[in-house]
């Protein structure tokens, strides 16, 4: 599913910063993986490259057999839209849109008709127990609810992988557990590949495979 070979990435902000120093990584379909590392270790950069939000300098990245390299913004957007679902620490919901409108948005960019995408979004919200909250705005919801809206938004396009960046980072411990349980269940029942970046070993412990990154290299898999 995910094939990384010798990925290198250097940031050039004033002085060059070599963030990823040759990452080799294979993640199979249906895996439940966590990537751990201290801040500055390069784990977020790796996640951004996996999510086609950022490009890399050398090496190869194959996603589901497609080489992801030198894409135009338009192509990258299309791949992100169809193959990848994102879950962020700060939820990244659009504040002036209701829960259901937020969930609909990826389908809007696929050109799905309004009625159809509304129907689908309602199904996903129901699945995540948020049916009654569909017409609420993000600031009217709790952190756990917001993250579940975000998960619904990530799921609605049937992505091959879900990339989660500290999905529980802004949640209390009880809600964290619920969200992790939800992700685990989605992995088990829907067979969605799940990659979670975290520095919380408690979160990592719930995944099937733990990858440790330190100073731009994988040190422990």
């Amino acid at each position: 599913m995910i094939e990384l070979k010798d990925i290198n990435k250097t940031y050039n902000n004033g002085q060059p910063l070599h963030v990823l120093k040759g990452i080799d990584l294979n993640i199979e379909q249906g895996e439940f993986v966590s990537i751990m590392g201290a801040s500055g270790s390069g784990k977020s950069t790796l996640l951004n490259i996996l999510g086609i939000l950022d490009n890399y300098d050398s090496g190869t990245y194959h996603l589901n057999g497609t080489l992801i390299k030198n894409l135009t913004e338009k192509q990258a957007a299309a791949y992100r839209n169809r193959m990848i679902g994102f879950i962020f620490q700060s939820f990244n919901l659009i504040s002036f849109k209701t829960a259901v409108e937020n969930v609909e948005l990826p389908l809007f960019y696929q050109g799905v008709p309004r009625r159809k995408r509304h129907e689908l979004a309602m199904q996903y919200l129901e699945k995540l127990g948020l049916r009654d909250w569909a017409q609420h705005y993000p600031n009217e919801m709790s952190g756990g609810q917001k993250q579940r809206v975000a998960i619904a938004r990530a799921l609605i396009t049937h992505p091959q992988i879900i990339l989660a960046d500290e999905p529980t980072g802004a949640l209390d411990s009880k809600t964290s557990k619920e969200v992790m349980a939800l992700l685990k269940e989605l992995n088990r029942t829907e067979k969605i590949t799940m990659v979670i970046v975290t520095h919380d070993s408690g979160v990592a412990a719930q995944t099937d495979r733990r990858i440790h990154i330190s100073d731009g290299l994988i040190v422990n898999d």
């Binding site: 913004e73 992100r80 960019y109």
Partner: peptide, 15 residues
């Protein structure tokens, strides 16, 4: 930031 979210979930520059 909002445009960043839109781009992450699949909005092309043209959109």
């Amino acid at each position: 930031h909002e445009f960043g979210i839109r781009k992450a979930i699949g909005a092309a520059p043209g959109d």
